[in-house]
Design a protein around this nucleic acid. Structure first.
Length: 628
DNA sequence: TTAGGGTTAG
């Protein structure tokens, strides 16, 4: 039965519907699985005695169902509609079609579309936009082709939906064709069409074309500005995105959550923390409420920039949280190695009635793995399955990592062999990494063979295998790995580290000799080196992947990019302040030992972010407990 | 009656 609570339909309309049913002997409400024929049959020849109500009545009901996504109630209205005198009304049927399309019931929408005795361009556009908005871009494009073949002319509504579908279907090559088509139809400078078009161009890196479309718009609105900001943000063009943001402000447009979410995301992925903080300050000043979408990205920005405390503050201040907010917090704790906190918050989340999804479980599993919480991790793996979430490859990677960290390499191997999916390269990489940590050469070589087969172009596993052999003194085998790398053309990604000081990013590569402060930096590192040697530092030369003698290996090690970055930061930041260093690849074992002792020697907290996680070095220890 | 832009993992 219809219920005011569930429907959220105005009570006036509801009583009208009830009254009309009573007065005109309409059939009882229809079940969810009734199709059009059975609905018609159930009317039992009553149409003749049926006196129609105002057409605005149906229209308003359908619109309400569309806005509030009330599919069940929409079906009931459909059941009544097909018995009314409006059952051949094209506009009414377009509205009905739109209701199904917007509620995401594309199969029912298609059924209505197929049975419509007549269609106009709005009919076609409605279904195209339904497909486009519900992740069925291919169907949207197919239907658009059919629409043209049937001789219907698209309008600006059709074109913006089709362009969105083309962008999602990764048909970047269609961009210029579609643009040409829009010019031909005269819609290229329409703000909706143009925004979709410039978004499509940015997704394929055609930033100049996107800018041309933007410049040619007959009018601009917040969506067109946001599309351009988001485009540059996605391409790591943080400075450009910020410049456009300032242009948006200059022209008097008010930024929305879309603008902020893009900017925080960009600042986070490119390490522009100071600029991100500036945007955050602007957001606060303009009185914008901190809600989930932009807030989640802001939380992520602080977490990825190394400040777990600020991330937590954002979570606490969120006016409204969704599952992504919780996942972002869990991920932050996981990446920073705060496993117990992640476990606590995961339980809080469940207590609060938020149902964890596959990413929540991935985060808590990662947190357990990074903190060595084997039993807890296994418990959550079992719980995930009990909750009806089918583990995917990335969950298996984390479980292998979890078992590997605990040193149970045979159990990790058994787990891989018994998995219901074909092991991926990432799964074997997790085992390989565990073998490196626990110095299991034979199993490491076995895992590496699988990785080389599945992902031959990744230099990482070659380097790890090299390190496994080198640390065991098996230099001939290590040389064989190096030779294989050379023959297959696999190159170790050049390592670089960077630090952000006073709004500027300073980047360093190994043996950096171009920096204006290079002599000071070298002297500083020598000073630190002497101190950490007193604390017991012994260079671990197995991390040097070149064929040179022991002495030269030791020299090479001292000029790894993270050590140069640390010396630079020590010279250019106030005494006692926390140092943040970022690195494009995994931090090497020797640098890890050196920085650990350096944190004690210089009395600083040093936070290093590598590709895997954060390392919080303090008082001679690291939050990763030497496993990463 | 129909349209365009944003988030968490790897």
């Amino acid at each position: 039965m219809l219920s005011t609570m569930a429907l959220r339909i105005p009570s006036r309309l509801l009583s009208q519907l009830k009254l009309s049913r009573r007065l005109h002997s309409l059939p009882a409400p229809l079940s969810e699985d009734s199709d059009e024929e059975s609905l018609l049959f159930s009317s039992n020849g009553l149409e003749s005695s049926y006196i129609p109500v105002d057409r605005r009545f149906y229209n308003t009901l359908l619109k309400k169902c569309t806005v509030f996504k009330l599919l069940t109630q929409g079906r009931i209205v459909h059941g009544h509609l097909i018995q009314s005198i409006f059952r051949h009304d094209l506009v009414m049927y377009n509205t009905l079609l739109n209701m199904y399309a917007k509620c995401g019931s594309l199969e029912e929408a298609r059924k209505v579309f197929d049975k419509m005795p007549q269609r106009d361009f709005v009919t076609w556009t409605t279904l195209i936009s339904g497909y486009s908005q519900h992740d069925r871009p291919c169907d949207a494009l197919l239907l658009f082709n059919q629409m043209l073949r049937f001789g219907f002319s698209p309008n600006e509504f059709t074109l913006s939906s089709v362009i969105k579908a083309a962008a999602a279907e990764r048909r970047g090559c269609c961009g210029h064709q579609l643009h040409g088509f829009c010019v031909k139809c005269g819609f290229d400078s329409n703000v909706h069409v143009g925004s979709a078009l410039l978004d499509l161009y940015t997704r394929y890196g055609l930033m100049d074309d996107a800018q041309l479309v933007f410049d040619a718009l007959e009018s601009r609105n917040d969506v067109s500005w946001n599309a351009l900001i988001a485009g540059h943000a996605r391409r790591c063009g943080t400075e450009k995105a910020l410049e456009i943001f300032q242009g948006m402000l200059r022209e008097g447009f008010r930024p929305s959550h879309f603008s902020y979410a893009s900017l925080f995301g960009a600042c986070s992925s490119t390490g522009f923390l100071e600029q991100g903080k500036w945007v955050h300050a602007y957001m606060i000043k303009s009185g914008e409420k901190l809600v989930a979408f932009a807030g989640n990205t802001l939380l992520d920005m602080y977490a990825k920039s190394g400040s777990i405390h600020d991330a937590r503050k954002i979570f606490d201040r969120l006016a409204k949280r969704d599952v992504v907010s919780w996942n972002s917090l869990l991920t932050a704790y996981a990446q920073h190695g705060f496993g117990k906190e992640a476990v606590c918050w995961f339980e809080e989340m469940r207590k609060g009635g938020i149902r964890p999804n596959e990413i929540s479980f991935l985060s808590v599993l990662t947190a357990c793995s990074h903190s060595g919480l084997l039993d807890e991790g296994w418990h959550y793996y079992e719980l995930m399955k009990k909750d009806g979430i089918v583990p995917e490859a990335w969950h298996y990677v984390t479980v292998v990592d979890l078992l590997g960290r605990a040193g149970d390499l045979n159990r990790a191997l058994r787990f891989i062999e018994e998995m219901p999916i074909e092991p991926t390269a990432a799964i074997w990489k997790a085992l390989l990494n565990a073998c490196r940590m626990h110095k299991n050469t034979e199993l490491g070589a076995y895992a590496a063979e699988h990785v080389f087969e599945l992902d031959p172009d990744d230099p990482g596993p070659h380097v790890i295998l090299y390190n496994i052999y080198a640390s065991g003194g098996r230099w001939n085998d290590a040389a064989r790995v190096r030779k294989k790398m050379k023959e297959s053309g696999v190159k170790k990604e050049p390592a670089c580290s960077w630090v952000e000081i006073e709004n500027a990013i300073h980047m360093f590569v190994a043996n950096d000799e171009r920096h204006p402060q290079r002599e000071e930096i070298a002297r500083k590192w020598e000073e630190v080196l002497a101190k950490i040697k007193e604390l017991g530092y012994v260079p671990d030369t197995s991390h040097v992947i070149v064929h040179v003698d022991q002495q030269e290996r030791e020299v090479n090690l001292q000029y790894h990019s993270e050590k140069i970055a640390l010396a630079f930061a020590l010279l250019n930041t106030p005494p006692g302040s926390t140092i943040h260093i970022k690195k494009n690849i995994r931090v090497c074992g020797d640098c890890h030992s050196a920085i650990k002792l350096a944190s004690k020697a210089v009395g600083r907290e040093i936070i290093v972010r590598d590709t895997n996680r954060f390392h919080h070095f303090k008082d001679g220890a690291c939050s990763c407990k030497d496993y990463w």
